[in-house]
Design a protein around this nucleic acid. Structure first.
Lengths: 157, 157
DNA sequence: GATATTGATTACAAGACATAACTGTTTTCG
DNA sequence: CGAAAACAGTTATGTCTTGTAATCAATATC
């Protein structure tokens, strides 16, 4: 039952270890959120709206780094569950202001707690320092990735 | 251009930080591998076969935790590029023995080096200890995820 | 006031992943 | 031995996540 040294050279790469850890977390978090009718993605959206009432879809898409079109279905879903509301902005009638309903706020709180507990379980065996170091490392990597966005690609004429 | 504190509460969750870091790595690695005609997934497959000549598809699928049917297309692709060969096993005529061609070996080496360089770029700002700690943390999380596979689900009668 | 820009949407395609069902081969064991 | 179960690989199919192009209405620009 051990994949022994079969993938040992891949283990040297960050991407591989990261993918495996992320897959583990992702599927586990999704299982955790299922009783709430949420997924990792919908939970993220819900949480950001909760923290930023009146947020608009474009901005939300920016924050979560997802494309606007993809957000539409997610919001349809959350709106259909009576967790968020889309109301036209007074000052700009093509935009929507997003808010979380009372029901949404309650669900978000309970789900957030479940995810936190789940995180603790997934981090068993790691000290508080190690967990903090993990977060730092992940953010550093993310920001390194961002900066190479423009650098890489094609040298523009 | 800063998503400021908009997603600050999500940042407390491992899954969120992990997803963002992983997405960054993934897209960057794929860009790195594109000149070689590879993706993260095909590169992983190629590398494991390279390290385990004669490996069979079922075992390969196990090692990489992907479903057998999905492996078929990937191997078709790699075989079509003359990077790997499928040869019927003498002792078991329903199985294939997978091997990497000379061309495949060369490509794998060059691609592997490119990915290693890329990893170094993505890990800028992290000391050797921090990088080692990251790998340790990721594996710990992965293994914590594994163990909850049976625990979670349904208590079997 | 015509033109461009923007917010949200629709329609569509590609990729990763999972499941069920099928072919052919090997193993099991009554 | 020979039927039944197990196994390697495949096909067909569906879902989920993500990305791009094009559309529509409203606003901004000049």
């Amino acid at each position: 039952m051990g994949d022994s040294p079969a993938d040992s050279s891949l283990r040297a790469f960050m991407g591989y270890d990261m993918k495996r850890a992320f897959t583990a977390i992702q599927s586990d978090v999704n299982a955790t959120l299922q009783p709430f009718g949420l997924r990792m993605l919908t939970f993220s959206v819900l949480t950001v709206i909760r923290d930023n009432p009146g947020l608009r879809q474009s901005r939300l898409a920016e924050v979560l780094m997802i494309e606007r079109p993809n957000l539409v279905l997610i919001l349809d879903e959350l709106e259909g569950m009576d967790l968020v509301t889309r109301t036209r902005a007074r000052d700009d009638r093509r935009a929507y202001e997003l808010k979380v309903t009372l029901k949404g706020r309650r669900l978000c709180d309970r789900a957030g707690q479940a995810v936190a507990e789940h995180d603790a379980r997934m981090a068993r065996g790691l000290s508080a320092e190690e967990r903090a170091a993990l977060h730092r490392a992940l953010r550093q990597i993310e920001s390194n990735g961002r900066s190479s966005d423009d650098a890489g690609e094609i040298s523009r004429p």
